[in-house]
């Protein structure tokens, strides 16, 4: 289960935002991923508290906080599974 502060962006993943969409390059695996707008927001702010991001998304997009939280957690877990997010050093 994804938790605040447990993960960070993988330093082996190069990325930049192009026209509002994050393009991630997994250098070791030789894969690229493109994120949609909300995914890009979550990726750019992955080091910030989840509840703060959920509040911002809920306000900016008019979506229920419960839905925004559920989607954000699912997204972050998929980023961990793909290796884009890795465990932060303790």
């Amino acid at each position: 289960m994804y938790e605040d502060g447990r993960y960070k962006r993988n330093p082996d993943v190069s990325w930049r935002v192009i026209e509002g969409q994050a393009v991630l390059v997994h250098n070791r695996e030789g894969e690229i991923e493109v994120l949609n707008e909300v995914g890009t927001y979550l990726w750019e702010h992955a080091d910030e508290p989840l509840e703060q991001l959920v509040g911002n998304i809920s306000r900016d997009y008019g979506v229920a906080p419960e839905e925004a939280r559920r989607d954000a957690l699912e997204f972050y877990e998929s980023m961990v599974a793909s290796g884009a997010l890795v465990a932060a050093e303790t």
Partner: peptide, 17 residues
């Protein structure tokens, strides 16, 4: 004006050869 919400997702993925 509020933006349309889209569930956060990977919208494109490709293996680079």
């Amino acid at each position: 004006m509020q933006r349309a919400y889209e569930k956060p997702a990977v919208i494109y993925k490709e293996k680079i050869e």
